[in-house]
Amino acid sequence: MEQEFARVAIVTGASRGIGRAIALRLAKDGFSVVVNYAGNEARAAEVVSAIRAAGGAAVAVRANVAAPAEVESLYAQARHAFGRVDVVVNSAGVMSLAPIAEGDLDAFDQTVAVNLRGTYLMMLHAAQVLPEGGRFIALSSSVVAKNFPGYGPYIASKAGVEGLVRTFANELRGRHVTVNAVAPGPVATELFLAGKSEALIDQIASQSPLERLGEPEDIADAVAFLAGPDGGWINGQVLRANGGFA
Rank of each mutant, 00 (worst) to 15 (best):
F5A: 03
F5E: 01
F5S: 02
R7L: 12
R7N: 08
R7Q: 14
R7S: 08
V8Y: 02
V8A: 06
A9W: 04
A9C: 08
A9T: 03
A9M: 05
A9N: 03
I10S: 01
I10M: 01
V11T: 06
T12M: 06
T12Q: 07
T12L: 05
T12G: 07
G13E: 07
G13Q: 07
A14S: 09
A14V: 05
S15F: 03
R16Q: 15
R16C: 08
R16T: 14
R16S: 14
R16G: 04
R16D: 12
G17F: 10
G17D: 14
I18K: 05
I18M: 11
I18W: 07
I18V: 11
I18D: 00
G19C: 08
G19A: 13
G19E: 08
G19N: 12
G19S: 11
G19F: 13
G19Y: 08
R20Q: 14
A21I: 12
A21M: 08
A21Y: 04
A21W: 03
I22D: 05
I22K: 10
I22N: 04
A23S: 08
A23R: 03
A23P: 00
L24T: 02
L24N: 02
L24D: 02
R25K: 15
R25W: 14
R25Q: 15
A27C: 10
A27K: 08
A27V: 10
A27E: 05
K28A: 15
K28W: 13
K28R: 15
D29Y: 07
D29V: 08
D29F: 05
D29C: 11
G30D: 13
F31Q: 09
F31H: 09
S32I: 05
S32H: 04
S32N: 04
S32Y: 03
S32M: 07
S32G: 09
V33M: 04
V33P: 02
V33F: 02
V33Y: 00
V34Q: 01
V34D: 02
V34H: 00
V34S: 01
V34Y: 03
V34F: 02
V35R: 04
V35C: 05
V35T: 04
N36K: 03
N36V: 01
N36R: 06
Y37T: 03
Y37N: 04
A38R: 11
A38G: 14
A38Y: 10
G39F: 05
N40Q: 08
N40G: 03
N40W: 04
N40P: 01
E41K: 07
E41P: 00
E41G: 03
E41N: 04
E41A: 11
E41I: 02
A42R: 15
A42L: 14
R43A: 13
R43P: 00
R43T: 12
R43D: 15
A44G: 14
A44Q: 11
A44H: 10
A44S: 12
A44R: 11
A44V: 12
A45K: 15
A45S: 14
A45W: 09
A45R: 15
E46N: 14
V47P: 00
V47K: 13
V48A: 07
V48C: 11
S49T: 10
S49I: 04
S49K: 15
S49A: 15
S49Q: 14
